Simulated scan of single mutants.
Amino acid sequence: MPAVDRINRQWVLARRPIGQVRVEDFARRDGPVPVPDLAAGEILIRTLMIGFDPAQRGWMDEGASYMPPIAIGEPVRGSAAARVVASRNPVYPEGAVVRGLFSWQDYSVVALRGEPAPVLVAPDVTPEEALGVLGGASLTAHVGLNQVGGLRAGDTVLVSGAAGAVGSVAVQIARLRGARVIGIAGGAEKCRWLVKDYGADAAIDYRNGDVAERLAALAPNGIDLFFDNVGGETLEAGIAHIARFGRIVLCGAISGYNDVTPAPGPRNLSRLIAQRAEMRGFILLDHMDHVPAARAELTAWLRAGQLRYRVDIQQGFEAIPATFLRLFSSASQGKQLLRVE
């Protein structure tokens, strides 16, 4: 059947979420598949698998950020693995699988002008690996720890959100680099993962204990490097226990992504002065020159059995919005993915 006769299913942003994101913030829309009358350099892709990241919640808000907001009525932007079904670009032959920042729809024309170029997925890499352990979350962990945080052997490293897609890889990278690692996660099961599966030296269950008290016991000499995915009270506890000349890397702040009114910031920022500590936010897009080397090292660790990961794969195009919401509950178990077909 010609591509023009098929349906292009889309999930678009129906309204800007207020507070907690809801399924009703999205709308299903069908349209024709883009006619593959491509301009030079363009490709037509069909989505195979979608990856979900907490940062997408921020892109749904109006206002300035490191990426433009998703427009009302526009397919929701997100990471995906897709097959090239038509191409006028020799770098991306028909039939190749690519990974990139695409959108919640079956078919997309990728113009490759003024946007990050898709990455060709090697034949021995599955879509799950391309979006998960070798995808943006793991690259964020690698770059954040090494290039931004200056990870060193012998550091005491604290990772919040440590059972998530970014945090679980950050824990393992720190361990592989010879650091002592403490992870923070929600629930006894996730804390068991951190120690048994990911090699953390200790885990703190923020739901069933006082994080600050546990840090005092586990890191009496302070935290050398804090990789924070959570913000809020967790960031405040990390600042309270930062070592002299310690480094804090701000990767995310998921605790506040659905707040209607922003929560007050950490009340103890003056401790950074006393400890001569650094605190820095970062976005992976600013460090793309380090991505090839980071991906190569992650791949080597994975194939050598030194890097473990979990994926939570949901099924079916209709389940896309509900799958995104799993990120903001205890439902998600590892990197959140959805297989379109």
Rank of each mutant, 00 (worst) to 15 (best):
A322H: 07
D61G: 08
R83V: 15
Y309S: 07
A82K: 08
G150T: 13
G209C: 08
G246P: 05
Q315M: 06
M1F: 07
L38D: 06
G167R: 08
G95H: 01
Q10F: 03
L250C: 08
G78T: 09
R88W: 09
G19S: 05
M60L: 15
S270F: 14
Y206M: 03
Y309P: 00
I184S: 02
P266E: 13
A185W: 09
I18F: 10
R77H: 11
T140W: 04
P93M: 02
L269R: 07
I182W: 01
E213F: 01
V181Y: 06
I184Q: 00
G164Y: 03
G305M: 07
V159P: 02
A170P: 06
L151W: 01
L307I: 08
E129A: 12
A122W: 09
V119C: 05
L112V: 09
L145A: 02
R244S: 03
G246A: 05
L44S: 13
G167A: 08
T323F: 07
E115V: 11
V121K: 06
N221W: 09
V249Q: 07
R326A: 14
A274E: 09
D201P: 03
A185T: 09
R207W: 09
L151Q: 04
F227N: 04
A170S: 05
I45K: 05
G281C: 02
D289K: 13
R247K: 14
A304E: 14
M288H: 08
I273G: 02
R207Q: 14
